[in-house]
Design a protein around this nucleic acid. Sequence first.
DNA 1: CCCAAATAAGGTTAAATTAGGTTAACGAAA
DNA 2: TTTCGTTAACCTAATTTAACCTTATTTGGG
Lengths: 231, 231
Amino acid sequence: MSYRVLYIEDEDHLANIVKETMELKGYMVLHQREGLKILETIPAFRPDICVLDVMLPYIDGFTLGNTIRKHYPSLPIIFLTAKGQTKDVLEGFSSGGTDYLRKPFSMEELMIRINNQIAIRRQTPSPRIEHKQKEFHLGSFTYSPDRLELRSASGIVKLSNREAEIMNIFCMQPNATIDRRELMQIVWGDDSYFISRNLDVYIRRLRDYFAMGQGVEIITLKGKGYHFSVS
Amino acid sequence: MSYRVLYIEDEDHLANIVKETMELKGYMVLHQREGLKILETIPAFRPDICVLDVMLPYIDGFTLGNTIRKHYPSLPIIFLTAKGQTKDVLEGFSSGGTDYLRKPFSMEELMIRINNQIAIRRQTPSPRIEHKQKEFHLGSFTYSPDRLELRSASGIVKLSNREAEIMNIFCMQPNATIDRRELMQIVWGDDSYFISRNLDVYIRRLRDYFAMGQGVEIITLKGKGYHFSVS
DNA sequence: CCCAAATAAGGTTAAATTAGGTTAACGAAA
DNA sequence: TTTCGTTAACCTAATTTAACCTTATTTGGG
């Protein structure tokens, strides 16, 4: 089983190196440049661990850590702090960090600490991340993520795993733009060409389902992603 | 309240510095030069955390860590490793360490990590002691893990050992995704092809049972595992 | 500055693959 | 000898791959 790492880092160069190394070790990594939408990303991606840079635009890492801790008390968080900032480290732990690493760090060191945090957490029988909502009302449809069911006047459709994963992401952000690459990253852990055709197939299926009722539409934003339009 | 640190270190000079610094910070420290009698020391001293040097006479730190972990699964252990010994570190974590520090370390760093480990442990409500529930109410069913019985309006089904093992795992995480490989690892200690067909057989049997009532469903998440849907 | 060709992005459909499901039968333990 | 767990052969459905199609966006000539 491959573990899922949510990694927030604004420096692209560093991020790419770290991401690739982690992927080589068999982890599924979702990298984002800032944490504004983290409360939507977490239930969609269901990470086993978060790795947060501390210096981030918009929201700093510690604030982010606090937010995560509030909603997901048992999700491990590793902070990446700038060197020589002990005060920061203390603040980091008080804001819910379970470990930290000073920059510059070796990948080896990071991997060890990630493995360790996941191992510690797995010993404790802790609840996995669940969908916060039991049901979503979308136009003339009702979607239940627990039962993977899409209900409407014309009947019940059982969604497959992949179909449901995409639905879950859409439901987190109704009437918003969902980035195509990000979507692929979350569902397939990859955004290559073949996955891309693959996503198309599933979008097609969802559109078929939604055509059986009213009020929901998946609108293509070419070059960007999809707009999940719900009324 | 002052926390209690059990500190095993054979270098007297270093040990004194560390001990004194910790005491200045208000910790109660018991320092010993080797770990031969650790299983007598722990219940007597009741430490909140153990700090173990790795290079020790008679018994090395990792072996010691293993022993401690066996008897006190939730007691945090910090290893102090010689520099440049990554292999050792990995071994250390697998032998139950919860953190480690490379020599030479700063006292500040050690204090931070000790505090953090104690804090983490305090957060965990009932650390690692499995709380076995007497009965689970699942839809129109009642499952009793003690009696291996699944009761519903249509009668009582006696579950076999294997059936119950799988049920137990499902009941720990209702409405969550259970990884297929992980499930096989837990029940059979193996996730090979034949085990896989085997699991299918048992899933089938459980599904048959649940078909006799309502509110419980085992949903396949292809490529992932199962979703134990309970209402 | 406009329009058509070129190109890139996404859509459709069906075949291929792989993961999982079903059923029956066999053998070991109780 | 009955129950349970495993193996095996065969079946079904989700997912991926592939080939081909359509539409938006870009580009460059007039």
